[in-house]
């Protein structure tokens, strides 16, 4: 009998915090997905740089979001909550990919992180294209050139070498150093914003 009572109480509390309403669920999914998919996908892409992983991680974020959508109640905006989910998902992914400790990930995650903007729409300046443009402006000319050819124009090592009048091996060295410098500039940018 005591068992029966406990169970009834459990049923009641389940109903209280979860009114079954498929229609409402589906509408919420609609707004969750349609409004945010592109912006979350691009954010993730700018962190992994390839479609396979971007699709994987985006799926993970939205599946987590759908399962936990009730916990988003009371969050100022669905979008900033989704960014938080994306952030932890990326952090988990990097932890294994780069085999880094958690605290080393913080700087990486700060770059291009728009979460604290809360209800405001994403600032236009936050797109990868804009961040890249800002970085290019700060880089020495030959670094700027190699990255422009390789990434913005999507040219092969060979084509880049021809245009820059360098050997292919030279281009590999140059792109390494240019990205290393760009990585440092990003970090400095993050640290300045934080101050």
């Amino acid at each position: 009998m005591a068992l029966h009572k406990a169970r009834t109480a459990e049923n009641r509390s389940m109903q209280a915090d979860k009114p079954p309403n498929p229609k409402q669920d589906s509408e919420r999914l609609q707004s969750l997905y349609e409004d945010n998919l592109h912006v979350i996908y691009r954010f993730i892409y700018s962190k992994v740089g390839n479609r396979e992983e971007a699709e994987d991680l985006t799926s993970q974020v939205f599946i987590k979001a759908v399962r936990g959508i009730d916990s988003a109640r009371g969050t100022a905006s669905i979008q900033s909550w989704l960014f938080q989910v994306a952030r932890t998902t990326i952090a988990d992914h990097w932890r294994s990919f780069y085999q880094l400790r958690a605290h080393s990930l913080d700087d990486l995650l700060e770059a291009g992180w728009e979460g604290p903007a809360e209800t405001q729409p994403m600032p236009a300046s936050a797109t990868p294209q804009d961040r890249v443009r800002r970085l290019l402006e700060q880089l020495p000319e030959h670094y700027r050139d190699v990255l422009t050819y390789r990434f913005l124009l999507n040219l092969s090592i060979k084509e880049t070498a021809v245009r820059m009048g360098l050997s292919e091996a030279n281009v590999k060295v140059l792109q390494f150093r240019a990205l290393k410098k760009a990585g440092r500039l990003e970090l400095e940018g993050v640290q300045q914003v934080a101050e």
């Binding site: 998919l37 592109h38 996908y41 691009r42 892409y45 700018s46 962190k47 992994v48 740089g49 390839n50 479609r51 971007a54 699709e55 985006t58 990097w94 780069y98 880094l100 080393s104 700087d107 990486l108 770059a111 291009g112 990868p128 294209q129 961040r131 890249v132 443009r133 970085l135 990255l147 390789r150 990434f151 913005l152 999507n154 390494f176 990205l179 290393k180 760009a182 990585g183 440092r184 990003e186 970090l187």
Partner: peptide, 21 residues
């Protein structure tokens, strides 16, 4: 890791790359 991150960021700036399929 930051160098690799920069590579990902620059890759995302390749026109059309970060458009979801």
């Amino acid at each position: 890791a930051r160098t690799y991150q920069a590579a990902a960021l620059f890759r995302a700036a390749t026109p059309g790359a970060d458009e979801p399929d």
